Simulated assay, not measured.
Amino acid sequence: PVGARLVPSLKKPGGNVTGLSDMANIKEHLSLIKEFLPNLKTVGIPYNPGESNSVSMLAQVKKVAAEMGIKIIEAPAPRTSDVMIAAKQLVGKVDAIYTPIDNTIISAVESVVKVGIDAQIPVFAGDTDTVARGAVAAVGYDYFDLGRQTGEIVVRILKGEKAGDIDVKMAKGTNLFVNPKMAKRMGVSVPATVLARATKIIE
């Protein structure tokens, strides 16, 4: 919301705007990868440097990863036709690949999945839809639940609080999609703890 200039700050944004952001919870995503790979050291991220949303997300990933002791290796892919090349550049350099919510990468995510299978590098996603297309797992949002979270903010405004005085909230991920078949094809097994809390298992 700040990067898109919807609000100047997440804390008491002022004006007449507040709300709920569905920006990915990066720490939750990286923690999920670490559950699969406890000795995780490096994560590769193919991304389109011309897509502002992707650049913003990459900056967040790098910040959180540094706090968790994880090194991020970037693989720029300005066009859909560059996605496989970008993914191949990560082979031998990373323990896992993470595909952010990036239109260019998502359009050609099957290329990343193929590299993951061929090189035995598990591919994780920033969105749950990509799990059905071959990613090992992803944490995402239940948008019905996000509606409820947003409703809580609306109630506060209806009770008299000014929108600008209410902190912008970050959505909480409630969905966990897992694809055990693809995990096996990429050389990893799904931890029992992950299977136990999965909201959807792709057969």
Rank of each mutant, 00 (worst) to 15 (best):
A75G: 08
E67K: 14
K172T: 09
G160V: 14
V123G: 02
T174H: 11
R133S: 05
I70D: 05
I70Y: 12
F36W: 13
S54R: 07
G44V: 10
V155D: 06
I45K: 03
V139F: 13
N179C: 03
Y143K: 07
G92N: 04
D142G: 06
I121D: 00
N53T: 06
A75S: 14
A163Q: 10
P46Y: 14
K88S: 08
P49S: 12
F144M: 06
D127I: 11
I85F: 14
V115M: 08
V91P: 00
V61R: 06
E203Q: 13
D127H: 09
Q60K: 13
G187R: 08
T130A: 13
N25M: 08
F124Q: 03
K34E: 07
I117M: 02
N48Q: 08
I117A: 01
A86M: 15
V94M: 05
T18G: 05
N175T: 04
I121V: 07
N48Y: 07
N53R: 09
L20M: 10
E203P: 06
D118Y: 12
N53C: 00
G134M: 07
T130C: 02
D129P: 05
L37S: 02
G147Q: 04
D142H: 08
A59H: 07
E28C: 01
L176N: 00
F144P: 00
R79M: 15
K27W: 11
G173N: 01
G92P: 02
I157F: 09
V2F: 10
R156S: 04
V61E: 06
V109W: 05
S21K: 14
V139H: 08
I26Q: 03
R156N: 13
A196W: 06
Q120C: 03
A192F: 00
